Simulated scan of single mutants.
Amino acid sequence: MKFKFENLIIWQKAMDLGEEMNALAYKFPKEELYNLSSQVRRASDSIALNISEGSILQSDAEYRKFLGYAIRSTAEVVTCLHKAKRRNCLNEDDFLKFYKACFDLMNMTIAFRNRIKKA
């Protein structure tokens, strides 16, 4: 038995990204614990949470709205990655790897949202 959102590739990728960002945040300096570490964890977790929450709604318009929240949370993660790189908490190779994961996930989520009919 599965919930329908568990079959969505965007949800699976969002779950993976959340775990990667959680592991990354543990590597940040202690002074970032209540700032950047917390923010990147919350933003990345929000992506999968909004995809799953939106999937149980009756209305396509509401589902599109929650997918929009997931897209915005992905953009927030990208900004956290830029902040981490500027603060020397993240090297260029890791930045590019995570940036690409976010870029791909955002584009997949936008494409998925575009397939859901507008109200």
Rank of each mutant, 00 (worst) to 15 (best):
Asp94Val: 02
Gly54Asn: 09
Arg86Tyr: 03
Arg87His: 03
Met21Asp: 05
Phe66Tyr: 15
Asn114Thr: 06
Ala43Cys: 02
Glu20Pro: 00
Lys30Trp: 05
Lys30Arg: 14
Ile10Ser: 04
Ala48Cys: 07
Asn35Met: 14
Leu33Asn: 08
Cys89His: 00
Thr79Met: 08
Glu19Pro: 08
Glu53Thr: 14
Gln58His: 06
Leu90His: 00
Cys102Trp: 05
Asp94Ser: 05
Ile9Gly: 00
Trp11Arg: 06
Gly54Thr: 06
Glu31Arg: 14
Asn22Met: 05
Val77Glu: 01
Glu76Asp: 07
Met15Ser: 14
Arg86Met: 06
Met108Ile: 09
Ile116His: 02
Glu62His: 04
Met15Asp: 14
Lys2Cys: 11
Tyr99Pro: 04
Asp94Met: 04
Ile116Asp: 00
Ala43Val: 00
Ala48Leu: 09
Gln12Ser: 14
Gln39Met: 03
Ala111Pro: 03
Lys85Phe: 06
Thr109Ser: 10
Ser73Phe: 05
Gln58Tyr: 05
Ala101Asn: 11
Asp60Lys: 09
Ser44Glu: 05
Met106Pro: 00
Thr79Ser: 12
Ala14Tyr: 06
Phe66Gln: 14
Gly68Ala: 11
Met108Asp: 10
Asn7Tyr: 07
Ala48Thr: 08
Leu24Pro: 04
Phe3Leu: 15
Lys117Arg: 14
Gln58Ile: 01
Tyr26Pro: 03
Ser73Pro: 03
Leu96Trp: 03
Phe3Glu: 12
Phe5His: 15
Thr109Lys: 04
Ile110Ser: 11
Asn114Ile: 02
Arg42Glu: 02
Leu17Gln: 10
Leu105Gly: 09
Ala75Ser: 13
Asp16Gly: 10
Lys118Leu: 07
Val77Phe: 03
Phe66Arg: 13
Asn91Gly: 06
Ala61Arg: 08
Tyr63Pro: 00
Asn107Pro: 07
Lys65Tyr: 15
Asp16Val: 15
Cys89Val: 00
Leu8Gly: 11
Ala14Asp: 09
Thr74Leu: 11
Phe95Tyr: 14
Ala43Leu: 02
Asp60Ala: 12
His82Gln: 12
Glu32Trp: 03
Asp94Pro: 02
Asp60His: 10
Ser52Tyr: 09
Glu20Arg: 03
Asn91Thr: 01
Pro29Gly: 03
Asp93Tyr: 04
Asp16Arg: 10
Cys102Phe: 08
Arg86Asp: 10
Ala111Lys: 09
Ala23Gln: 11
Glu6Asn: 12
Cys80Asp: 04
Asn7Val: 04
Ala23Lys: 13
Ala111Glu: 02
Leu90Ile: 01
Asp104Leu: 08
Leu90Lys: 00
Arg72Phe: 11
Ala25Thr: 00
Ala25Gly: 01
Ser55Asn: 12
Gly18Ile: 02
Lys27Tyr: 07
Asp93Ile: 11
Ser37Glu: 02
Arg72Leu: 15
Asn35Thr: 13
Ala101Phe: 10
Ser59Lys: 04
Ile10Asp: 02
Gln58Arg: 06
Phe5Pro: 08
Lys118Asp: 09
Leu96Thr: 10
Met106Lys: 13
Lys2Pro: 09
Ile10Glu: 07
Lys13Pro: 06
Asn35Arg: 12
Asp60Trp: 01
Arg115Lys: 15
Ser59Glu: 06
Ile71Leu: 06
Glu53His: 14
Tyr99Asp: 09
Tyr26Ser: 13
Gly18Thr: 06
Glu62Asp: 07
Glu53Asn: 09
Lys2Tyr: 12
Phe66Ser: 12
Met15Thr: 13
Arg64Gln: 11
Ile56Cys: 14
Asn7Gln: 08
Leu67Pro: 15
Ile56Asp: 13
Leu90Phe: 02
